[in-house]
Amino acid sequence: MPLTLTLTEGVIPAASQKEAVQRITNSMLKHHGLLGNKAMTPNVTAHVSVLPKNSTFSGGEEFSGVWMEWKVPSFAFAVRGIQLAHFAEATEIIRELSGGKQPIENIYSNVIHTVDGSWNFNGIAMTNAEIGEEIAKG
């Protein structure tokens, strides 16, 4: 379940990118009740893309932004309370790591749900039910 974290250069220090990924990942797992789950934890992956300051825009004008995008099975982020709690926490993580300089209105998030049966765990395309069985193992 990859997290794509895209940042305008300078929003957070390069040395803080790993911490951002770790904390956002832990937040996602925590709010789904899966923190420490041996099946789910290694299947939550991430990559960070840092874009030059002159290549990120809002309303056609250059600005500094942050985009957090999750690609997950359809059961993830399906509960409104989880959406609200996780994205509030993830937004605060970025704001904090920016030294309070990144405005929260320039921190964006979204979720893309995959087609049931297309999610790959351990080299096998699994349905939501099959993933649930793996998660239930702990």
Results as ranks from 00 to 15, higher is better:
residue 97 L to H: 07
residue 124 I to E: 13
residue 91 T to G: 13
residue 86 H to R: 04
residue 16 S to Y: 07
residue 27 S to F: 01
residue 102 Q to P: 05
residue 5 L to Q: 03
residue 52 P to N: 09
residue 74 S to V: 09
residue 125 A to C: 08
residue 98 S to N: 07
residue 105 E to L: 03
residue 54 N to Y: 08
residue 47 H to E: 09
residue 115 V to N: 05
residue 112 I to Q: 10
residue 24 I to A: 01
residue 68 M to G: 04
residue 42 P to V: 07
residue 4 T to I: 10
residue 88 A to Q: 13
residue 110 N to I: 01
residue 133 E to Q: 14
residue 21 V to E: 03
residue 19 E to T: 15
residue 96 E to Y: 00
residue 134 E to W: 06
residue 46 A to R: 04
residue 82 I to T: 15
residue 46 A to P: 07
residue 90 A to H: 06
residue 84 L to P: 00
residue 45 T to A: 12
residue 86 H to T: 09
residue 92 E to P: 00
residue 9 E to Q: 15
residue 31 H to T: 11
residue 102 Q to N: 05
residue 50 V to D: 02
residue 50 V to E: 02
residue 121 F to D: 00
residue 12 I to A: 02
residue 78 A to N: 13
residue 11 V to E: 01
residue 55 S to D: 10
residue 132 G to W: 02
residue 19 E to Q: 15
residue 134 E to A: 13
residue 119 W to S: 05
residue 130 E to K: 10
residue 75 F to E: 02
residue 118 S to P: 00
residue 100 G to E: 02
residue 128 N to K: 10
residue 14 A to P: 11
residue 119 W to T: 12
residue 12 I to H: 05
residue 2 P to R: 04
residue 17 Q to F: 01
residue 118 S to D: 10
residue 11 V to G: 02
residue 123 G to M: 06
residue 137 K to A: 05
residue 131 I to T: 03
residue 49 S to M: 10
residue 86 H to A: 03
residue 51 L to G: 00
residue 14 A to N: 11
residue 27 S to R: 01
residue 77 F to V: 04
residue 15 A to R: 14
residue 102 Q to V: 10
residue 27 S to D: 14
residue 17 Q to D: 04
residue 90 A to G: 05
residue 25 T to V: 11
residue 50 V to C: 01
residue 102 Q to C: 09
residue 46 A to V: 04
residue 15 A to T: 15
residue 18 K to V: 12
residue 126 M to E: 11
residue 128 N to T: 15
residue 124 I to A: 10
residue 34 L to D: 06
residue 71 K to F: 08
residue 114 T to F: 06
residue 34 L to R: 07
residue 49 S to V: 13
residue 34 L to M: 14
residue 14 A to Q: 12
residue 32 H to C: 05
residue 92 E to S: 13
residue 115 V to A: 09
residue 57 F to T: 09
residue 11 V to Q: 04
residue 73 P to E: 08
residue 49 S to E: 12
residue 50 V to W: 06
residue 106 N to K: 15
residue 11 V to P: 03
residue 125 A to K: 13
residue 125 A to Q: 11
residue 3 L to F: 08
